[in-house]
């Protein structure tokens, strides 16, 4: 039976190329389908003032970061100091979303580590989290004044991510 050498060689080259490209990618990261779409509607209470309800239209109107966190989340603690620093610079409004947490624990956590948030919403049962497609806290969203989701970062924030992805709106359009 004939076997032209070119076919297996071609297949092999394609495979190697694919693997090479694959090495530059992270298979665990899932891109968000929300990019470019409006922030979902919600109705949640505030952590510090549980009797107050906040809805989407109360929140939007300027660029802001939505940071999904929880007191039981180890990685959230790692990024928190960066967020506190960012808040001090007053570049952008940062809203916290306390995800599937006990409010008492959350309040204590913020007291210990600092509260950088303009306000913190309580998403006790994770409904907003599900609408946002949260699958691993911490996650941070960049929202524009119209309420559109511009960017989502999964995992703890780093200076690089903040500079290059989240604060890009502060630079003039090129």
């Amino acid at each position: 039976m004939k076997a032209q050498p070119i076919i297996p060689i071609a297949i092999f080259i394609l495979l190697v190329a694919l693997f090479g490209i694959g090495l530059t990618k992270d298979p665990r990261l899932i891109p968000s389908p929300l990019i470019g779409k409006p922030l979902p509607e919600f109705e949640l209470s505030l952590l510090h003032h549980p009797e107050d309800i906040v809805e989407k239209h109360d929140l939007i109107g300027e660029y802001m970061l939505l940071n999904v966190w929880a007191s039981w989340c180890v990685a959230c603690a790692e990024e928190h100091s960066l967020i506190v620093d960012l808040a001090k610079q007053k570049i952008i409004k940062i809203v916290g979303i306390n995800y599937k947490d006990k409010s008492a624990d959350a309040l204590r956590w913020l007291e210990e580590k600092g509260d950088p948030y303009d306000s913190t919403l309580v998403d006790f049962d994770g409904e907003l989290g599900m609408d946002l497609g949260v699958y691993g806290v911490p996650e941070t969203f960049l929202i524009d004044p119209k309420g559109q989701v511009l960017y989502k970062h999964v995992g703890p924030l780093t200076l690089e991510v903040i500079e290059n992805n989240l604060l890009t709106f502060t630079r003039p359009e090129q």
């Binding site: 693997f19 694959g22 090495l23 990618k25 298979p27 665990r28």
Partner: peptide
Amino acid sequence: FLVRSGILT
């Protein structure tokens, strides 16, 4: 390669 390179979960 697949097992040790991390390109597949």
